[in-house]
Design a protein around this nucleic acid. Structure first.
Lengths: 213, 213
DNA sequence: ATCTCCTCCGAACGCTTGTTTCGCAGAACA
DNA sequence: TGTTCTGCGAAACAAGCGTTCGGAGGAGAT
């Protein structure tokens, strides 16, 4: 019985649960599944839910109402909220949010699957304004997801605030003794050299998201 | 009473609900909130939940157990499952999934917030293999999110399968009478002209996601 | 045919859960 | 001082809910 094909009834139940959660924000009760799928008894639902649980499609807590957790697409997944804290432009620093700061409930928030970002926490995102990041292959309108600098290693793509120039830019960073080499991701372009005190790493790039205009 | 500050107790309840959902996959009961927050009575929970509901932090369905839906970051959000169906390379077509096809439960799945993709459904994604998409400003390792061609308009960035050449590419499409102009997003590059029967539009690009190596 | 396993049905049991009621205490206010 | 409002506490109610049990029908094996 370990891993068998889903019956039509089981597929229907699964789809009903998925849709119910999407609509209500909480899982259905057994009797709601019964009615929603046109089944004749709650015991049929229970029977098939046990099968689904054993096959790994759902997770259930016994003796608890609505304790059904979908483990598949459309169900609940480990998703990390990523607040979009503002825009990034050449002429001003990134508005890095404070650690543990609660976003207001209506602030724009991305949610990204844990797997995509390696389970990192404390991420935030900015929209790119202007064409100042083209040398990092990042363009107007892109969304850049950053993490607070945990540890900056040579070769990391980071957002740096150049104090002297009053400018923020995305570059690969290499520390070379007293000075810092900022290398554009675009290999055709020349690196920038500056002193270590002049650079403030505001975040490490975790992801770039683009929507075509 | 309309919009006031959250009391410490309300903040605690909210945080408990958030954490409970993250842990269990379904909302807590009133009595679980009571115990989890060290409150003395269920009526206190009910009292504060009503306040939270009126302030717009949660949504409740009356007379239904565990019918609490978080409306803020960390809670449930409208998220669309996007299966990653394979890789896209120059030399072969994209494995476009059939409409309504259920992904296997262990297939890799992105989840993207509704707002980011305009509520589109039936999306799928592919990983980019090779450097064949550079003229669309898309690079090795990027993830391209596509929608099934609902209606292709001139200027759309689409994935096209060139039957004659046996090749897939990402270009902006313009129909010019009998022939089709495929324009690279990179303006410095030259367009391709071909006949309408030679192109098969496999998807429209909705989003590009990049993780720096 | 007999047995076993799978799937389903109907009903009942008992706990869980949201709701309600009544009451109390303190603060704000006139 | 009396009134009102807020926030809290204890208990009870009724409906919702997951579970369980006996049994039926069918398919396949022996």
């Amino acid at each position: 019985m370990a891993t068998r094909e889903l019956t039509a009834k089981q597929r229907r139940i699964l789809e009903f649960i998925r849709q119910f959660i999407a609509e209500h924000g909480y899982p259905p009760s057994i009797r709601q599944i019964q009615e929603g799928c046109g089944l004749s008894s709650t015991s049929v639902v229970d029977y098939n839910l046990r099968a689904l649980e054993q096959m790994g499609y759902i997770r259930r807590d016994r003796e608890v109402s609505r304790a059904i957790e979908l483990l598949m697409p459309g169900g609940r997944r480990r998703v990390v909220p990523v607040p979009v804290v503002g825009t990034i432009a050449a002429g001003r620093p990134i508005p890095v949010p404070e650690e543990g700061e609660w976003s207001a409930p209506w602030e724009e928030v991305l949610e990204l699957p844990e797997g995509l970002i390696g389970g990192k926490e404390g991420l935030f995102a900015v929209r790119v304004k202007g064409e100042s990041m083209v040398d990092a292959l990042i363009f107007e309108g892109d969304i850049v997801v950053l993490e607070r600098p945990p540890e900056v290693r040579d070769g990391d793509l980071v957002a740096v605030w150049l104090k002297g120039e009053g400018e923020v830019t995305l570059k690969k960073i290499y520390r070379e003794g007293e000075r810092v080499r900022l290398q554009p991701a675009n290999r055709a372009m020349e690196p920038i050299y500056t002193s270590a005190d002049n650079v403030e790493v505001q975040g490490r790039v975790v992801m770039v998201i683009r929507r075509p205009s």
